[in-house]
Amino acid sequence: MFTNQQINLDILPSIDDVALKPISKQYLMIIVINRWVFYALIVSALMVAKLKIVHEGFQLAFWYLFSACALFCILNFVVALLAFNKRKYAIREQDVIFSKGLLVNSISVIPISRIQHIEISRSWLARRFNLATLKIFTAGESGIDLRIAGLNYSEAKQINDFLSNRVNGID
């Protein structure tokens, strides 16, 4: 039978009521390692430049350049650390939610019925920490695709199975 009840907009399930779950604490280690490798690359590039370039102006400006880079690295590192606590996710009956970002915070929601495919990827470093990244794709190139990094491998597999079953219509 066809019904067309009016919907009370106030009793719709709200995004505010969702308890978002933080990702694995160990992922912080991966972030730290990645950052330090990145900073090390910058500093070594600077050092190589100092040794190789004999131009006088460059030698004068070197310490300014170096301190600018150091400042950038420190700020970047602090922001990365603070932003870690903002990485949170949740799975609801009908959708997947992922929230991230300190300077620009975003909450992305993908309805399960719109998922095209799911991917679990694990980098070398992530395998050491027994972590995994879950990628969720929707149709179309302009789509907002989710990339939840730093899940426990077993949990990622669990979510993957649950979502795959839902997408394929097996409840």
Partner: peptide, 22 residues
């Protein structure tokens, strides 16, 4: 296909946000 709320740190103070709909 998907919905996203975006809010910068300045917008947060003013309780403003943007919505991206794909």
């Amino acid at each position: 296909q998907s919905v996203q709320i975006k809010q910068s740190i300045f917008q947060k103070r003013n309780e403003i946000a943007s919505i991206h709909i794909a």
